[in-house]
Design a protein around this nucleic acid. Structure first.
Length: 612
RNA sequence: CGGGGCGUGGCGCAGCUUGGUAGCGCGGGUGCUUUGGGAGCACUAGGUCGCAGGUUCGAAUCCUGUCGCCCCGACCA
């Protein structure tokens, strides 16, 4: 390709719309253009990158038995009603774009494809003899994100590879899940990305085990907690840890302590010398479900701990999802809401776990009983300080039995960096940030049961299929690569996913010898299978160098002053190392380097096999 | 949705407080010079100041409404 024909439009200034470096660079270097919030055009340079990533993904997914398909994006609401996800995905803060057709039939624009694929599987799969089967597609997904962000990182329309596997039993599912784990590690390393696998929450997709693949980068939206020994890594929303020991409350009789104006843990501690770990704090929240009344929650946590709302949502779904359907939302209760329910004001700031259900009597649309949950750190306290539920006072030295409560110990707390690990107390969790580029799930039979995807097993009996699903954010991965590979001058694409591997810069387009040699090398390198770009524009050399750096082509060949004598200059974008060499030796020098670089990073895990 | 900010030639911005009919840099076009790290000079084209109302002799500027975008929080590949 010739740059003169590439519609290369680069920007000198950072566009005002971009915040993080990868987004700025993709815009400046002419890879993307914004069309609307969270909606981007993939320009020719980026499209080449996306195709290279897709090709790597295809090879690796095919290698573990995937069959490529293309599924519809326009999906009948009925499918989603059958899986029970229509409400959760469209109502409240649902993320599915949905619409009515001329007959008033409802449709969703596919944010994911479990429903469609499971329906197809139900139709096609009848016998264990057909199993296992794994289908995948590389497809545009639509999600009405609450807040689109950072260019391709969180778009409302984006490209995803999603694969779905079907099995006769759970062990077979586990095998494929493991295969995908390996395939994903190979994919990211072949793309030249440093990625880590972490334990994850399975969120709205559901299912049991799930693992995320994070590209490590400061701009990442996820917090990863990992042990330095490499044996444990998890997304913070899922991470478990050992909380520090509580400071025992000094012995003394039970008393009620006047604490006017001390409605925060901090205020209480600094006024009376308590340690936060001696206090049981109470959070009042309300959970909204698809069916039934809103459920007030009374959550007890040790004063020094933070609530992990993902863990809470999982507990709520497990407890109440059966009867009340999808959990739509959990939000803190504030005084205005209490008033709107027609209830007397609650003693916010002085709440204790013994707050009686009577305070909810007569609520307009709330259930009149609290769902009471306690984190283990709170439940395990022998004696503690808690709110007296009125009178601007706290109780000091109470026990759960004093309060007439027997809290069940749940894990509701957020693990924090610095916490000790469960698997080894000598290990301390360390935080880093990551961009989630892949997520693999063992779905189990959630969708197959809901959608009636059954097969006949070896014993001649019908049973639901076991399923797994496996996603990679292809367009997000492209931007994550930029986040990980750039410098002050622009992008630095890993060779394996670079839009072009090498750019030939004609230093002076008016020197016939330079043009002739460049044209000859351009032809030679194309013939040698190199993805080569020729900058034949009538620009000054400086402009071409700046653009070559900005768009991040990994190798640059300068045909300049030495052209008459048959020498050229080869420059590696990363690091900037230069070498002068005779043009005749170029292919022999470059091609072996490219062959090695096309394989991406070396894999850390030898067990996962070879990267190319 | 809550909080913060911004909409002015293609891009980045100034002008707005204190109303008087729009300016700078980059980019585009033409010509000459230059030619290994975003060249110089000259000429030139290009703007319903997001949109709609209002106040005023007069509105980019003041008021009201509205739309869009960006950032912080809930969502996820």
């Amino acid at each position: 390709m010739r740059v003169s024909r590439l519609l290369l439009v680069t920007l000198r200034d950072d566009p005002a719309e971009a915040e993080i470096i990868s987004h700025k660079l993709l815009l400046r270097a002419g890879f993307i253009r914004r069309v609307g919030s969270g909606i981007y055009a993939y320009l020719p340079l980026l499209w080449r990158v996306l195709q290279k990533i897709s090709a790597i993904v295809r090879e690796e997914v095919n290698a573990v038995g995937g069959l490529e398909t293309l599924l519809p994006q326009l999906q009948p609401a009925e499918l989603w009603e059958r899986s029970g996800r229509w409400a959760g995905y469209t109502a409240g803060e649902g993320i599915m774009f949905h619409l009515l057709d001329r007959q008033e039939r409802a449709f969703g624009l596919g944010p994911t494809h479990e429903e469609v694929i499971t329906t197809i599987a139900a139709d096609l799969l009848r016998s264990y003899r057909q199993l296992p089967v794994c289908l995948y597609q590389i497809q545009t997904k639509f999600r009405d994100e609450i807040r689109p962000r950072f260019g391709l990182m969180r778009g409302r329309e984006f490209i995803m590879k999603d694969a779905y596997s079907f099995h006769a039993d759970e062990e077979d599912l586990r095998r494929t899940y493991q295969d995908f784990d390996g395939a994903y590690r190979r994919i990211f390393s072949r793309c030249g990305l440093r990625a880590v696998a972490v334990e994850a929450d399975s969120g709205a997709i559901g299912g049991s085990a799930s693992q995320e693949f994070m590209v490590t980068a400061e701009a990442g939206e996820d917090l990863i907690l990992a042990s330095p020994d490499g044996r444990y890594a998890a997304n913070q929303e899922r991470a478990t840890s050992r909380a520090g020991a509580a400071v025992p409350l000094p012995a003394g009789p039970f008393r009620v302590l006047a604490t006017p104006g001390q409605s925060t843990i901090q205020g209480l501690c600094s006024a009376h010398g308590f340690d936060p770990s001696q206090i049981v704090k109470v959070l009042l929240l309300v959970a909204r479900f698809a069916d039934g009344p809103d459920q007030p929650l009374l959550i007890s946590l040790r004063g020094d701990q933070q609530l992990n709302d993902v863990k809470l949502a999982n507990v709520l779904t497990a407890r109440l999802g059966g009867e009340r359907g999808t959990l739509l939302e959990v939000e803190p209760i504030n005084p205005e809401q209490v008033q709107r329910q027609g209830l007397a004001p609650l003693p916010f700031g002085y709440l204790g776990p013994q707050l009686e259900d009577a305070v909810l009597a007569g609520a307009r649309d709330w259930s009149t009983h609290f769902l009471r949950l306690a984190d283990a750190t709170a439940a395990e306290l022998e004696r503690f300080v808690c709110g007296a539920n009125g009178g601007e006072a706290h109780r000091v030295g109470v026990s759960w039995s004093d309060l007439g409560l027997k809290p069940e110990a749940l894990d509701l707390r957020a693990a924090q960096p610095g916490d000790r690990c469960l698997h080894d107390v000598s290990q301390v969790l360390v935080a880093s940030r990551g961009i989630e580029v892949g997520h693999i799930f063992q779905l189990g039979r959630k969708y197959s049961e809901a959608l009636g995807a059954r097969f006949t097993n070896e014993a001649g009996q019908e049973e639901a299929l076991w399923m797994g699903c496996y996603g990679i954010g292809v367009s997000r991965l492209a931007q994550a690569a930029v986040e990980q590979h750039h410098d002050a001058n622009g992008l630095i694409w890993p060779v394996a996913i670079a839009p072009f591997e090498l750019i030939i810069v004609i230093a002076n387009g008016q020197e016939a010898a330079q043009v002739a040699l460049a044209e000859q090398l351009y032809g030679d390198l194309q013939a040698a299978g190199v993805d080569v770009l020729l900058d034949d524009r009538s620009e000054r050399a400086g402009v071409k160098f700046k653009d070559a750096d900005l768009i991040g082509i990994p190798w640059r060949l300068v045909v300049g002053r030495g052209a008459a004598g048959g020498t050229v200059e080869l420059v590696e974008r990363a690091g900037g190392a230069k070498q002068e060499l005779p043009a005749a030796e170029l292919a022999a020098t470059l091609v072996p380097l490219l062959l090695a670089q096309r394989r991406g990073l070396a894999l850390d895990l030898p067990a996962q096999g070879e990267g190319a």
